[in-house]
């Protein structure tokens, strides 16, 4: 009678209704299209998250970042004297996520490609680049290497969008993109 009582007779032999049958076929085709879009974008799309990642430790990652800062620092900003680094196109760029800051700030060139390394020193953090709205999870113990090509010059913000404790909302930094020299 209704869905509240046992079905009568041999219900698994009842023929499929036309409404349901048609809908199932349409919906299934749509599900397949949605699946194929993902591999398709890996081949033809330009925005795919890198699969390159390594195990690391806070000490190792800190050392590599420090080496980059020593080599490519161009200035310091804010009262905290946060270094701004401008590594050459094609090079490795390191950004540390830690409670509750990003370090250092980087200056990239428009249209050039960089290998961006992200890792956390402590808890989980969220790399959220605004206003591009690119969002990537940052783990402690994992060094994530992304190949990234900034397309427009400007001042961008990196905010944390993975809750990381009481001062989570203060964790923000900048990323500069300048016209290619």
């Amino acid at each position: 009678m209704s869905a509240l009582v046992p079905p009568q007779g041999v219900w698994w032999k009842q023929p499929l209704d036309r409404v349901e049958g048609t809908w199932i076929v349409i919906a299934f085709v749509w599900c397949l299209i949605m699946f194929f879009m993902m591999p398709y974008w890996h081949v033809f799309g330009k925005q795919n998250l890198s699969n390159e990642a390594y195990r690391t430790t806070p000490e190792m990652f800190q050392a590599k970042t420090q080496a980059m800062v020593d080599k490519f620092k161009v200035r310091e900003e804010t009262d905290l004297k946060i270094p701004v680094v401008a590594p050459p196109p094609g090079s490795d760029v390191y950004i540390i996520a830690r409670l509750w800051s990003w370090w250092p700030m980087v200056e990239l060139q428009e249209g050039k490609t960089y290998r961006l390394h992200l890792a956390s020193m402590d808890w989980l953090h969220g790399f959220s680049l605004q206003p591009e709205n690119i969002n990537i999870q940052v783990h402690p113990g994992y060094e994530h290497v992304l190949t990234v090509t900034p397309t427009r010059a400007g001042t961008y913000s990196i905010i944390c969008n993975e809750y990381c404790g009481i001062n989570h909302h203060t964790m923000a930094s900048r990323l500069y993109v300048v016209k290619a020299k």
Binding site: E20, W23, A27, C31, M34, F35, M38, I136, V138, H139
Partner: peptide, 27 residues
């Protein structure tokens, strides 16, 4: 959006190639 897992793993496990669970809800 996590590091350390491959795209193949992500694509397959998020959809099982067919999104049959999405199909079930659409049904």
């Amino acid at each position: 959006a996590d590091p350390g897992l491959t795209s193949n793993w992500k694509i397959f496990n998020t959809s099982y190639a067919m999104y049959l669970a999405v199909l079930a809800s659409m049904v």
